[in-house]
């Protein structure tokens, strides 16, 4: 299964990032082979709607699951509507969390776990 992990670095032993929309790196991992491909998160520098943009990117990659901690409601809505499952992680490396997923030890989130608007910003703000 193709999963996206929010990460702080570019290999399997990099620490994960608790942030979804503005995490530094997205790691795309094949959970069967542990093959990894990493991408700088272009949304990290987005004005408003980083979470939405990041979720759109994940959907466009054809991923089936996201492993992260703080997923806001907008990003969550995009992922859920696209049929992407969201799993909650706390700490650990990319390798560890994917293994935990394989062993069925991760909790699937059924709703967003940070309040709305956490990172919004527009013209003068949002």
């Amino acid at each position: 299964m193709k999963v996206v992990v929010t990460a702080q670095g570019k290999d399997l032993d990099s620490p994960t990032s608790p942030i979804f929309g503005r995490c530094p790196v997205f790691a795309i991992v094949d959970s069967d082979t542990m093959a990894i491909e990493t991408f700088d998160n272009a949304s990290a520098a987005a004005g408003g709607g980083a979470g939405i943009q990041a979720a759109q990117w994940v959907v466009d990659q054809g991923a089936e699951a996201v492993l992260s901690l703080n997923v806001g409601p907008n990003a969550f809505a995009v992922l859920v509507q696209a049929g992407v499952a969201v799993y909650r992680i706390e700490g650990g490396t990319v390798r560890e969390v994917v293994q935990a997923l394989n062993e069925g030890r991760l909790e699937a989130l059924s709703r967003p776990n940070v309040a709305s608007h956490s990172g919004m910003s527009r013209r003068g703000g949002f």
Binding site: P18, R22, G47, G119, M120, S121, G124, G125
Partner: peptide, 19 residues
């Protein structure tokens, strides 16, 4: 403009450092 975005930038960086 964009003071909300700048607020987010300041707060997120502070939060990350604090954590």
């Amino acid at each position: 403009e964009n003071s909300g975005k700048l607020v987010t930038q300041v707060k997120m960086t502070a939060k990350l450092t604090a954590a």
